[in-house]
Amino acid sequence: MTSARVVSVSRDDEHRFSKPREDEITLVEGLGVEGDAHFGATVQHLSRVRRDPSQPNLRQVHLIHRELFAEVTVDVAPGELGENITTEGLDLLALPRGTRLHVGAEAVVELTGLRNPCVQIDRFRPGLLKQVVGVDQEGDVVRKAGAMAVVLSGGVVRPGDAIEVRLPSGPLEALAPV
């Protein structure tokens, strides 16, 4: 995992499905991506705000591995699936909950769970939802649309930044939808 790096960074100050790419984003401890609609200590995803606006925001930063784009049969570019950070050389979905990713010179995010893809993906590209959610041989649901994280240490993140992985100590817990 020594070759893991940031391919692209994105943010949007409005709640839209895709996020425009930026030259850099600033992560703020405990809050997320500065200037992004999902910035905050409590939930910012509209459906979750309607349910309980006091819940902690475990989805401050959305990460997707660029390798996913090669797996799907439709054209998808960084930021188009709503992620803040597009990675390369890192099997995000195989990492356990609590994994810390040191991104660039200062930023540290901790993985909280998987993105639970919804029908908005099909509205973006018809048929894409079936490609990012499936069932494995054991009958378990497999979600491929990225991982969610909280910001432990803030900092500026840019394309080309290295990503260092630090696994949690103790028993490892697989990522689950958050």
Results as ranks from 00 to 15, higher is better:
G30H: 02
G32W: 10
G35R: 11
G35K: 05
G35F: 05
D36S: 03
D36K: 05
D36R: 07
D36V: 04
H38W: 01
F39T: 03
F39H: 09
G40P: 06
T42Q: 05
T42Y: 01
Q44H: 05
Q44N: 01
Q44T: 07
Q44K: 13
H45P: 00
L46K: 11
L46Q: 12
S47F: 02
S47A: 00
S47E: 00
S47L: 02
R48E: 13
R48V: 00
V49K: 12
V49Q: 12
R51Q: 13
R51G: 03
D52W: 05
P53A: 02
S54L: 14
S54G: 07
S54I: 06
Q55V: 14
Q55N: 15
L58V: 11
L58Y: 14
R59Y: 03
R59E: 05
Q60G: 09
Q60D: 00
Q60I: 08
V61I: 11
V61M: 01
V61H: 01
L63A: 13
L63F: 14
H65Q: 15
H65V: 12
E67Q: 14
E67V: 11
L68H: 03
F69R: 03
A70W: 12
V72R: 10
V74Q: 01
V74F: 06
V76S: 01
V76R: 05
A77Y: 06
A77G: 01
